[in-house]
């Protein structure tokens, strides 16, 4: 059964490449280009996993993550964070907010696909 991956990213070219490789890996993709849209997707489209950028319009990735972890219904949604900043500070913030995986840009396609698959397998019950 196909899994549904939510991509939250405001750079269209990056969205395009992520969509391509995740489709290839057999997943469905839904896209949000800002923080609010990401939350709407979580509420309405029940994704199985989220690939989340940090620098986003309106609400940034941390705020989205925090919101997800604060909601009983969605808190077990696996989240993979992608960031172009790649600083330890961001990694620590993400970890403390309960991120499941963290990959710095520019990423390797295989790494992202492997990571998504791994998180989907380990998906917590009730998600």
């Amino acid at each position: 059964m196909n899994k549904r991956v939510a991509i939250v990213e405001d750079e269209p070219h990056i969205v395009e490449s992520l969509r391509f490789i995740l489709n290839r890996a057999g997943h469905d993709v839904i896209v949000a280009d800002n923080g609010d849209a990401a939350i709407e997707i979580v509420k309405n489209d029940s994704p199985d996993i989220m690939v989340l950028d940090i620098m986003l319009p309106i609400k940034n990735g941390f705020e989205v993550l925090k919101w997800i972890r604060s909601q009983t219904r969605y808190r077990s949604l696996p989240v993979l964070m992608l960031t172009a900043k790649g600083q330890d500070k961001d990694r620590n913030t993400a970890t403390s907010l309960g991120v499941d995986a963290f990959i710095a840009k520019p990423f390797s396609n295989d790494e992202v696909v492997d990571c998504v698959n791994r998180l989907l397998v380990a998906e917590r019950p009730g998600g």
Binding site: E11, I14, L18, I21, A84, K85, P106, F107, S108
Partner: peptide, 14 residues
């Protein structure tokens, strides 16, 4: 810099 690099690397890998 990383943002365009990400696209470049990702599409090159594809």
């Amino acid at each position: 810099v990383r943002t365009p690099m990400t696209s470049i690397r990702s599409f090159a890998e594809i």
